[in-house]
C-alpha cells in the first residue's frame, strides 16, 4: 500500500529562481501534516508544486503511487487534491455561491455539498448572492476553504489561511478544522504561527531556504529544534 502522497528529491523553480532543493516528504492517509518555515523558505512553492500549478519531473511527486509531478493543475485536482491558495484568490466576477459551486464542478462524490457548507459557515448562506470580494477577509477565507471542500478532496492543502485575519476569526476557522478533517480527509497545513501549526497537526515539517530542515511528530519536536530549523542558528 503506497503512501497517499510521496515527494522525493523535489527541485522546483519559480521562474529563473530555484526555490526547492531535493525536498522529501510523505503524507499518510488520514493525518494532518503542518509545514512551517520563514518567509521565502519555499512553503508556497511546495504547495504549488503538489497542486500542479508548478510542473516538475513526473516522479518527484507521487499520489496514491501515481507519478503526478508533471501533470497540469486540473488533472491533479481531478484526482482529489485541493488547494486553498495563499491570499484566498477568489473569483471576483463570481458571487459567493458561484465560487462554491465552481469548486464542486468536477462532480466528485463525497460528503461535501452546498447545504453542509452553509451549515458549517452560516454567514455564507446569508451572503450567498453578493460578489465574493465584497466579503470581509475572514468570510472570504471561509469561501476559499469551502470552494476547496466542494471538490470533495482526499487531500486538502491550506496555505497560510490565517494570514491577515483577526485572531477571533482565526480561532473560528481553526475550530471548524476538526470537523472538516474528521471524515477521512488528509490535510497539509502551511502556517506561520508555529504553536497553531503544532496543535492541529500530527506531524510537522520545517523548510529552510528550500530544504527540509526538520521533520518529526508534532508532539515530539522541541522548541529548540524548531528555532534551529526555522532560523538556521
Amino acid at each position: 500500500m503506497p503512501e497517499l502522497l510521496e515527494i522525493k528529491g523535489l527541485d522546483a523553480r519559480y521562474g529563473d529562481f530555484q526555490a526547492l532543493y531535493g525536498v522529501d516528504m510523505t503524507v499518510s492517509a488520514g493525518e494532518v501534516v503542518a509545514v512551517i518555515g520563514a518567509n521565502g523558505a519555499g512553503k508556497t512553492t511546495l504547495m504549488r508544486s503538489i497542486s500542479g500549478l508548478i510542473r516538475n519531473g513526473a516522479d518527484m511527486v507521487r499520489y496514491r503511487g501515481n507519478a503526478i509531478g508533471a501533470l497540469r493543475a486540473d488533472q491533479v485536482a481531478a484526482q482529489g487534491v485541493a488547494l486553498v491558495p495563499e491570499g484566498r484568490l477568489l473569483f471576483q466576477s463570481l458571487s459567493v455561491e458561484e465560487n462554491l459551486i465552481i469548486g464542486g464542478q468536477m462532480g466528485r462524490k463525497g460528503p461535501w455539498n452546498l447545504r453542509r457548507l452553509y451549515d458549517l459557515f452560516p454567514i455564507l448562506e446569508e451572503r450567498r448572492n453578493v460578489p465574493a470580494t465584497a466579503l470581509s477577509g475572514g468570510q472570504q477565507q471561509m469561501v476559499a476553504i469551502g470552494r476547496a471542500l466542494m471538490s470533495n478532496p482526499d487531500l486538502l492543502m491550506m496555505d497560510e489561511i490565517s494570514l491577515g485575519l483577526a485572531p477571533v476569526i482565526i480561532r473560528q476557522i481553526y475550530e471548524a478544522l476538526p470537523g472538516i478533517v474528521g471524515e477521512g480527509l488528509t490535510a497539509i497545513v502551511v502556517e506561520q504561527d508555529i504553536a497553531k501549526a503544532l496543535s492541529v497537526s500530527s506531524r510537522v515539517i520545517c523548510l529552510q531556504e528550500g530544504r527540509v530542515s526538520l521533520s518529526g511528530k508534532s508532539g515530539d519536536v522541541t522548541r529548540d529544534a524548531i528555532s534551529r530549523a526555522y532560523f538556521g542558528v
Binding site: 497542486s51 485536482a77 473569483f91 466576477s93 463570481l94
Partner: peptide, 24 residues
Amino acid sequence: TALGRAFRATSDRQDIAQLMGLNR
C-alpha cells in the same frame, strides 16, 4: 450557466480556475 461560470472564473484567474479542475 456552468459554462459561463467557467468562462468568468478563467477570465478572473486562469491559474486558480485550473485548480478547480478547469482545463484552460
